[in-house]
Design a protein around this nucleic acid. Structure first.
Lengths: 133, 133
DNA sequence: ATATTAGTTGCAAATGATTTGCATTTAAAA
DNA sequence: TTTTAAATGCAAATCATTTGCAACTAATAT
């Protein structure tokens, strides 16, 4: 809740607005998308970028890359792993209920000694519809 | 072997040189890296980019994204899937001998109807060394 | 071999997301 | 209320990548 105080960041208008937008988002957003959602139009795009990067450093948000190589940001809600199956042809995606790689990753940790925390896997394939074409 | 003829692409000097460099590479390379490996220094960087994109379209190369959001290219050798375990802290990576997700993916195909062909997974975690720190 | 032509290339300029320098402002500590 | 380190707005810089266009060349037909 108190993301800013917890991270020892000053509570400013841009930061509060950006947090609010991220809280309302169901999907990760680009900096531009967040920028255009801002009610206070005097906030600068570079402030949005800077804020999002700051948020990432203190783990308030998670930064990923979308299909167009843009950074996309989403609130880093602990324990909210998503596993998405993405069609490489039509880009349609399906949310999986649970991690299909859970057991496999445990095996892998034993074998390699790595502590795996890739729990937002995007799995690529061709969806049933596109297979027909 | 005869990548160019097979793909109905003209056999030009830039293409042959770039192919040669890719054949000698053990890791995926950026366009710039390939460019600086060229013996014929009269070849233009944009030709390298264009060539690599053409190669990708005809599936001669595989295009991926590295940590700095640059495109990296590698020869698309059939049946040479790689599974790399990457440390998110030090970026050290370990090649896995075989796909840890093979069975899990088969399950997933049955469940979803998707035809999965993500067989160059990068798995992220923290390596043993970085866990100590 | 030679001419033809569609596909390639070099060059320079454009693009587009993201970053940065710097002067100004502001939240929070004293 | 004063002080000060941190945050912001603005404009310009970055940097990988793409693109328009004129010149060139490999492959095909003559």
């Amino acid at each position: 809740m108190d993301y800013l105080k917890d991270a020892h960041l000053k509570s400013t208008k841009p930061r509060k607005e950006i947090l609010h937008i991220l809280e309302g988002a169901t999907l990760p957003l680009t900096a531009e998308e967040i920028f255009s959602c801002l009610k206070d139009k005097s906030i600068n795009l570079s402030t949005v970028y800077r804020t999002l990067n700051t948020f990432e450093e203190v783990h308030i948000v998670k930064k990923e890359i979308n299909h167009s190589k843009e950074n996309i940001f989403s609130l880093n809600k602990e324990g909210e792993d998503s596993h998405i199956l993405v069609c490489v042809k039509c880009h349609k995606s399906v949310k999986l209920d649970d991690c299909p790689y859970h057991e496999a990753n445990e095996e892998l940790e034993k074998k390699t000694g790595y502590h795996i925390h890739d729990h937002n896997t995007e799995i690529y394939g061709v969806c049933p519809d596109c297979q027909k074409k």
